[in-house]
Design a protein around this nucleic acid. Structure first.
Lengths: 157, 157
DNA sequence: CGGTAATGATTGACGCGTCAACAAGTCGCC
DNA sequence: GGCGACTTGTTGACGCGTCAATCATTACCG
């Protein structure tokens, strides 16, 4: 308790921080690059296709879809526009709410997701699960949770 | 060793992965948003200004600068163009190599970095260091290192 | 030397993400 | 019914990142 009022990280803490943020960034980039190379899909494409695949009738209202994957509506709208151009999804009007729309998974989109899924999961295993021991994995869970709590507190307070 | 040949992550492992990647992403976004709000700087601005601040004579050749922060030259070139427009850095011709250039930190850029630095370090402490125990921090270091090794192996092999 | 390769740096095109503005529809409530 | 408030969804502008192409200069080497 001699350091309770410390305002800045020590250089040791800063080193750990930099390693952490650079490594997670590199991991993200490597996964994205493999996904792109193997399936011509971006991470954004993937999460949208995943959500639609799991949805009732392979279709969702944009707002609902955005909520499920934790995106802003605007971001989703841009993403859907790009995906529609490539035939992965289709927009339809919504019967019950004339403002609304529906995003529908096309057969092409479903096929693209099916092809992407296995190599992507393999890559997650190879680059994330495999390098970590069981203890590491448990520690990751604890750390993730602590950081998430810190974020909540930081945004709320 | 009953699972050595497993190709895909279990749903438990997948959950940990998703939490991990979403949380690190949220952390990155929160830091970026605070930096922007407090100092009108992007993370890219910050690392460039940091590198130039520490450089001999507050100036660096683009290639050298890119190497120090681990960026591609092209990315840096775009970044410098944007920063030059805002007066944070200046481009000069290089005396010893007529192909080359030099990126020079302006007084404005130095001031912007000085103003940004303290709140940014405070935010890193608040959102990363503080939520983690000493053990967590040590575990983070181990995990980071394991993931980095996994990346090396994955890219090389 | 002279020509080819390598290096330094930039650019343009394009995908992605955020923010603010906007159009259009629905809801609540008198 | 009608009017204001909220919701749904889209768009445009702009910053950011990657990739491939380009140009100028320097280095290598036969």
């Amino acid at each position: 308790m001699t350091e309770r009022r410390k305002a800045f990280p020590t250089s040791e803490e800063l080193r750990i921080w930099r390693d952490f943020i650079e490594t997670t960034e590199a991991l993200r980039a490597e996964l994205a690059s493999r996904l792109q190379a193997e399936s011509s899909l971006s991470p954004g494409d993937y999460v949208v296709l995943l959500a639609l695949s799991e949805a009732e009738g392979r279709r969702l209202r944009p707002s609902e879809l955005a909520a499920r994957i934790g995106w802003e509506r605007s971001r989703l709208s841009h993403q859907v526009r790009r995906m529609e151009r490539r035939g992965l999804v289709r927009r339809e009007e919504c019967a019950v709410d004339s403002r609304g729309a529906e995003v529908v998974l096309t057969d092409e989109g479903a096929a693209a997701f099916a092809n992407a899924s296995r190599p992507h999961l393999r890559a997650i295993r190879e680059l994330f699960v495999h390098p970590l021991s069981e203890d590491d994995l448990a520690a990751t869970e604890r750390i993730t949770s602590a950081l998430r709590n810190g974020l909540m507190a930081g945004r709320g307070a």
